[in-house]
């Protein structure tokens, strides 16, 4: 589907990556939730690693 690039002008100016949203919209709701859980767990792992490094 051809999209008007100006449609997301405001969102993109705000810093929103429309390509990430489009990638999510290609997934089913369950896949979106699973992907989110993975991202959340990765964030936690990184946080713990950084806390460990800082002592």
């Amino acid at each position: 589907m051809a999209r008007d690039p100006a449609v997301h002008e405001e969102a993109e100016a705000y810093g929103i990556d429309i390509s990430l949203i489009r990638a999510n919209l290609r997934l089913t709701p369950t896949e979106r939730l699973r992907r989110h859980d993975k991202a959340l767990n990765m964030q936690k792992k990184l946080r713990v690693a950084m806390e460990k490094k800082r002592g």
Binding site: A11, Y14, I16
Partner: peptide, 14 residues
């Protein structure tokens, strides 16, 4: 605010 902007972008995509 960012969530609102993302949701509005999703509405436009759909």
């Amino acid at each position: 605010i960012e969530t609102i902007k993302q949701l509005e972008a999703i509405q436009k995509e759909e």
